[in-house]
Design a protein around this nucleic acid. Sequence first.
DNA 1: GTGAAAGCGCTAACAC
DNA 2: GTGTTAGCGCTTTCAC
Lengths: 337, 337
Amino acid sequence: MTGIREIAIEAEVSPATVSRVLRNPELVSEEKRLRVMEIINRTGYTPNSLGVGLRKAKSNRLVAIIPDAISAFNYPVIRAIESIALEHGYSLLLGDTQEMVSRERSFAAMVRSRQADGILLFCPRLPFDVEPSIPLSEQLPPLVNACELVPINGLAQVDIDNALAAEDGVNYLLSLGHKRIGVVAGNLTSPSTRNRLEGYRRAIHKAGIAYDDSIVKVGDYGLEKAERATLDLIQCPNRPTAIFAFSDEMALSCISTLYKQQLQVPRDISVLGFDNISYANYCNPALTTVAQPMADIGKVCMELLLPQLNGEPMPVIKRVLKHELIVRASTGPAPTR
Amino acid sequence: MTGIREIAIEAEVSPATVSRVLRNPELVSEEKRLRVMEIINRTGYTPNSLGVGLRKAKSNRLVAIIPDAISAFNYPVIRAIESIALEHGYSLLLGDTQEMVSRERSFAAMVRSRQADGILLFCPRLPFDVEPSIPLSEQLPPLVNACELVPINGLAQVDIDNALAAEDGVNYLLSLGHKRIGVVAGNLTSPSTRNRLEGYRRAIHKAGIAYDDSIVKVGDYGLEKAERATLDLIQCPNRPTAIFAFSDEMALSCISTLYKQQLQVPRDISVLGFDNISYANYCNPALTTVAQPMADIGKVCMELLLPQLNGEPMPVIKRVLKHELIVRASTGPAPTR
DNA sequence: GTGAAAGCGCTAACAC
DNA sequence: GTGTTAGCGCTTTCAC
């Protein structure tokens, strides 16, 4: 493992000059520059990032704090973030918290110990103790909060309008003649879930339909709970003619469960998903869903984070991106009974 | 951001003593130890990992080099690795290469530049130039190679027996009376794909069936290519009665495509997958598949890596884990024509 | 049991 | 343009 000193000795220059060749080549005479570069290329020397980081007080690493790091939904978001981060010399660390607050905080602590320079926060809690009397943006490290928003003002945030998105989805089902629409929700600790629920209520209220608690089932975004919820829904008196699942993964589980119960989708029951994961177009029947612009979410996160990493203050802004209803084959007219 | 020096001043001890309290508390008198600990707890001091790393020449970070970091298959493997790594004080960096050799090498270079201490290699190429005259294990950093094996001896490797696993899968289809079994393979650059193909050939050969090139379609493990391959297969003269897809994701794409073509699974065509991802049990029909022990793969990777991180030489060993045929609803008896 | 001092690999301010 | 020097934060001899 060779260091800058060895390169310097071999090139008969000072370590400082070697460093300059790498960081500010324009300050070095062409002759020495070429001599140094030749040795660097030949030996495959790479600066020790710990030394650089220590000196510059920078790790060039970002940490994403995510309840469930590698779900089909998060995947494109993370991909977009990672690819932009890499372009700017940062690598991305995935901090999978499994919904544990202690793990959220432990990942966040990496910034303090200089293992990371910035945070992408996908949890609805700030993983720091904050002093209420001081503006948030002044006491936080470079940070962007997305998808599950901390219910607080003063952060850089990125999301869609979940309530409106759900409302649009329900309106579409209403337009097909469905009057009894069941819900398979995720866990209520998630603000996005609560907002989608609110959008659902708003839509059916506007349509003059009474809210019926018994056909709104709360799960945890897992496939098993979604199966259970679906079974509960179809055993309801006055069975729903449509089910709105708050994620595509749960919608797939719904559909599979319905078929096992000899119910055809969408002939007997329509199913609407949320997210538009890549499978949505490859399941059977193809899934009608409320699409989130996942790659864009990642892109905007980095747009808000990069300036902070360069020393600018946190922009106090909430970027709301557009959702889109994608109609495929899992929804159809309400059956006449 | 407070450092060891501030703690030392406040506790009226030397920085060395503070360091000892954290690393070798038994060397410090109880009195000073308590005094220092109190201040550390109160201020929330965390050692700067760059400083520690520089001094100890260790980053406590591992990098996983993966062609497609966050596929449904890789997910449980990565999860297992990350959770064990964390227990041992390492964090995991996901290096998604998108099949680009340059990215494989650039992630591997993180070890050289001390950004990582060890490598989990899921690609079938060594991302280093090696000197053939020296034993591999002596010139490589801590490293484990899994799932896509480098075709070379002298590494620590983890995998299943892909050929045997495929053979078992095909034998099951044969036992159902299928005589014409199509294949939707992944890309042939992947050793696991080639091995599965070999297992397929072996099984049909033993059954006295001639290998027919025209019903073996090569894809790239993507959903689109799998759709194309499925369409090709059903337009073949003497259409296959069963399709063996070399991943569950591709199998789901097959099934969806078949339904779009008015073909019922398994009534008209059986579909067999590979991996046993979590969706396999929640698709419609539920997928029969050759299961890989994904969490175990991750666990064994860490079993082979941790000793190396502690300075032991690379174990030259190939751990072959057990696969398992999981019969669900996507396969059935061959239709009689 | 404890402190002083050296040094991990690098960069940047300063002097020439 | 270039070299010398100091120091980023920490751990670990070494002496006491």
